[in-house]
Computed example of a mutant assay.
Amino acid sequence: MKLFYKYFLLIFFLPLQFFSQEIDSSKIECKYLITFLIDTANINTQKKENASLLIGTHISLFKSDQKQIADSLTLISVEKSASNPVNGRIEINTSSVPTAKFKPEVLYSGGKVTIYDEISKEHYNFPAPDKIAWKIENDTKII
């Protein structure tokens, strides 16, 4: 059983460590207020959340600020639980960790864009369908 928990911790939190190392080296941070629907068929489920686009030299990550906080608190909770086993068992309780409403994340790395999302507690990742062809023009706009 201990082996299971070690593999769980490794598989679940290794990507977080990978992203956090790259986020720490970000050069630019752009803040957004995103508005989205929890249920696209119901306009009354509209929510707002702050998000950040962290841009580094070779990698960028777009993620909800609340999800960033939740991920950090979950990691701390797991590390604390792993260092204090109860009767030889690691018990992970993340019920007190606040959750984000906006789950998708977009990672740009190595020329590829990968989207991470959660649907009904199932986690998915897939490549972005189309590459954006940016066209920079000499225009300005006051918003």
Rank of each mutant, 00 (worst) to 15 (best):
P127F: 00
P129C: 02
F102R: 10
F36S: 06
L75N: 10
I34Q: 09
F12W: 07
I143G: 03
Q21D: 08
N44K: 15
S96A: 15
M1V: 10
K112T: 11
F8Q: 10
I43M: 12
F18H: 04
L107P: 06
A128G: 08
A100K: 01
F102Q: 03
A128V: 01
L14Q: 02
N87G: 01
S95Y: 03
N44Y: 15
I132W: 01
N125H: 15
S26Q: 11
V86M: 02
E105M: 15
L53M: 11
E49H: 03
S120K: 13
N44W: 08
E122I: 09
G88V: 01
T40S: 12
Q66S: 14
K63S: 13
K112G: 04
S60D: 03
I92L: 04
I76L: 14
K47T: 04
L3V: 10
A41L: 13
K101P: 00
K101V: 00
K135A: 05
I90L: 02
L14K: 07
K48R: 13
E91Q: 08
H58Y: 14
Y124H: 14
E49L: 04
K131M: 06
S95W: 04
E122F: 08
R89D: 09
P15I: 02
Y116P: 00
V86I: 09
G56H: 04
W134E: 07
K27P: 00
L3F: 06
A100C: 11
C30R: 15
A51Y: 07
E105T: 12
K103C: 02
I11F: 11
S96F: 10
F62I: 07
T57F: 06
V78M: 08
I23W: 08
T114W: 09
S52M: 02
T94V: 15
I115P: 04
I28R: 13
F102M: 10
Q21P: 00
K103V: 04
F18I: 12
I142Q: 07
S95D: 10
I38S: 11
I132K: 02
E79I: 15
N87D: 13
S81H: 02
R89E: 14
Q46N: 06
N42I: 10
